[in-house]
Computed example of a mutant assay.
Amino acid sequence: MVTDNGVGSGGSAGQVGGNGSCEPELSDCLKTFGAVLKALREEARLTQEQFAPLVRYSVAYVAKIEQGKRFPPRDLLERSEEVLGAVAGRVLGAAARSLTRKAGLASWFRQWAGIEEEAISLYAYECRAIPGLLQPEPYIRAIFERRLPPLSEEQIERQVTARLERQQLLTERPNTAFSFVIEQALLERHMGGPEVARQLLDHLLEQGARRNVEIQVMPLRQYDHAGIDGLMYLAETPQHEWVGYSEGQQSSILITALKDVSAMLQRYGKLRSQALGREATVSLLEQMRGAL
């Protein structure tokens, strides 16, 4: 099992409160739903590669649902019935009614990860660590090697692999608009040492050159700052609905209330106006890279 615990620093991600383990088990109800979907798909003599475009999801996403690693999106049942038939739709609906969303680490993060994979816009403001989608492998390792309580080598490898897999979103979803606002202090920290910092800056310059990726740095000195309430992540779904996500020490929360999401969007919009523009950010990253 591969999990990615945290959208940013690698800390806990996904629970409404309380403590969660670093290696959560898959929920039995999710595994059951995935097994039912797989059986119905195979009964229809469809491979994942054939089935995925028919229900308008990626092959990788369908695979994760069948493995019990993702909560099925709301549209999946209706789309599956169109492909597999009414009887299969009723069976899948019955399996879906058994799903529970425990307030545990794995379930909440799987839900956000699923939202990420289908988002048409994805925004992130980070003040703790470089956003997970932008972390090069040496930086990822530096984070998990410093994790407390300490992780085993096997646990570190699983976490690194999971995060690198998740980063494929940047290449697999060229029509998704990615926006990142990062505090300059995170770059000045040199997490992992000078060589890791060099690779991080190179990686940010490379990713920021993508047409659908915008990276902005928030200067060290900014007298007007809208990020006082801390990090935030926002995603626009294919139905043009916005969802928010936030993390803390050993806790995290998915934010769906319209009033709260609206407030986050306002703050994020203000942050983008306060941060360095795209060209100024590239200039600063190149300057910092040259100074190392």
Rank of each mutant, 00 (worst) to 15 (best):
L92Q: 06
P136R: 12
Y123M: 06
R90V: 11
Q67A: 15
L46V: 13
A63D: 09
I130W: 01
V91D: 05
L84Y: 04
V91Y: 04
I130K: 00
E43C: 09
A142Y: 01
R97K: 14
R110I: 01
V59S: 04
V55F: 03
P131V: 04
E137W: 03
Q48T: 14
L134N: 07
L105E: 15
Q50I: 08
G89N: 13
V36F: 04
A52K: 07
A95P: 11
E116H: 04
E66P: 10
F144Y: 11
R74K: 10
P131T: 03
I120M: 08
R41N: 09
D75R: 12
V87Q: 15
R128E: 14
K102V: 12
K38P: 06
A35V: 06
F51Y: 15
P136W: 06
K38C: 14
A106W: 10
C127L: 07
A113N: 09
A142L: 00
I143G: 09
E126F: 00
F144R: 03
A142G: 01
A124H: 15
P53A: 05
L99V: 07
E78L: 10
I120R: 14
E78H: 13
V55L: 04
L92I: 12
I115S: 01
A119E: 00
A94W: 10
L122R: 08
A142M: 00
A60D: 13
R70L: 05
L105M: 11
E49V: 14
S98R: 14
E126G: 09
G132S: 05
Y125P: 07
V87I: 14
E78R: 09
T100L: 12
Q135V: 00
A63R: 13
A96N: 06
I140Q: 03
G93F: 00
P136M: 08
V36W: 03
